[in-house]
Amino acid sequence: MTTCVLAVHAATTGVTAAAVDATGAVRARGHRELAQHRPAPGQVEHAPEEIWQAVLGAVREVLDRVQAGELASVAITNQRDTVLLWDRETLGSPRRAVAGQDRRTGEVCERLRAAGHEARVAELTSRGLSPGAPGPTLAWLAEHEPRTWALVEEGRYAVGTLDSYLVARMTRGLEHVTDVSNASRTLLHDLGSGDWSAELCGVFGVPLDALPEVVPSGGEVARTDPRVFLGLALPVAGLVADRSATHLGLAGLGAGDASWDDTASSLLVTTGRRLVRSAGALTTAVWRSPDGTDTFALEVTTGADRSSESWSGLRDAAPDLVSLRVEHDADERLCQDLGHRLGLDVHRAGSPDAAALRGAALLARTP
């Protein structure tokens, strides 16, 4: 019986795979650690082949516990902002992936800011020029690794986020796709139009045709090739960044529903299909329905500071809150403080299973 979704979560320090059944329960789980490479101060990278081998290893553990015939589809959720290059034919990568924690692009951002680009970038993306975003990272690569970048411009190398890379590997290079929750973090995507922006690509010097197609977050968008994916021929039916997946896994579907992610130190509040802007929060697209409509949210990130003072602007940034949900193992004292600041009861997830896996699996079940 094909009752489970194979959910794959490619995170900062490891890859987790799980067979998630129709109730949201995890039937089997596998995990592989992932090394971070730090070639210079402020630089954080991952080896693409190590990412792929970690995925295969985690999925093998799942297949040790459930039959392949019990798997109905694949869902991918991933760390936001990491960007990769790979050869469209061989799928080999000319360099390591640059992680979202990387800060090498400070000079690039300052130069673009001095040239007057930041206001327009923020208008289209709701984000300022920040190190770690793929747009500035790709501009840095073009400047510092021109031989590699020439092959991007010639069309030999594809550019994408982690979800794009994993789909390419699972399909033997036949598909080059991403979803809106990943695209909207790149500084290359126009929130209003819902697609890549030629204007923004011009700012950062990124060829439009190197980027993946932006497809729905739920519903079949590709099919795995059993010759490269452990004998599995499954529809890829869920693509979503892990912060959005966690939000969805904690039942953040309705307008005003909020979730707190302790790992990301961020509050996400669904605003529905309205693109709402707030001075105290970032506007982001959290997922795209099969009919092509986007669901938006406001996000407030507190960073490492978790003191009471860091919550002071949250209610101003998201005044229409109706519920607040946190993961099963979220810090009790922090949750009490957050609930008090926002004037809401805190609802804790009943299951200790990772909300990101449940959220990705839920999207894969979207008709």
Rank of each mutant, 00 (worst) to 15 (best):
G272C: 09
L84M: 11
T161W: 00
R27H: 06
T90K: 00
A139C: 11
R104W: 09
A251R: 12
D257M: 02
L141W: 04
G42A: 07
R325D: 08
D195W: 04
G24F: 08
A279H: 10
A210N: 02
P146E: 06
A133N: 12
G14I: 07
A17P: 08
L362H: 08
D345I: 02
A18Q: 02
V180P: 06
A40F: 11
D163F: 03
E123I: 07
S217L: 06
R333V: 15
A245P: 13
G202L: 03
A114I: 00
R348V: 15
W196C: 03
A264M: 09
G303A: 11
A304I: 11
D209R: 13
T284F: 09
H347R: 14
V59M: 05
F296Y: 15
R333Q: 14
G343M: 08
D257P: 05
V326F: 08
L232M: 00
H189R: 10
M1R: 15
D291G: 11
G231D: 06
A297G: 13
R32D: 07
S164L: 04
T270H: 07
E199D: 15
R60C: 02
G192R: 14
A119S: 14
A25E: 12
D261N: 14
A114P: 01
R104T: 06
L162A: 02
W196E: 03
V177S: 05
R333A: 15
V240E: 10
P41G: 07
A54P: 05
R185F: 12
S308N: 09
S323D: 07
G160E: 01
P41D: 10
L34P: 05
D316Y: 00
T186H: 04
Q101E: 14
A279Y: 12
D242S: 09
D261F: 00
D257W: 05
P134K: 00
L239M: 08
V276Q: 10
V269R: 06
G194K: 03
V108T: 14
G14N: 04
P226T: 09
P290T: 04
T283E: 10
Q79V: 06
L362G: 12
Y157R: 01
D261C: 11
L239E: 03
A251F: 13
L234H: 07
H46R: 11
Y165I: 01
E110V: 03
R127M: 13
G202N: 08
P352W: 02
E70V: 10
T295C: 13
E107P: 08
A10H: 10
G339F: 09
M170V: 01
W287I: 02
V177R: 01
V228R: 03
G202E: 14
L232V: 06
G194Q: 03
L191A: 11
P48I: 06
R325A: 14
D353C: 04
T2A: 15
G69I: 10
A255M: 03
G100I: 08
A237E: 04
W140A: 00
G280H: 13
L174C: 01
D64R: 12
V206W: 00
S181N: 09
R223W: 12
T366R: 15
V15Y: 03
E213S: 10
T366F: 14
H144T: 14
L344N: 08
L275Y: 04
A122N: 11
P212C: 06
P131Q: 07
L187Y: 07
R348L: 09
G292V: 05
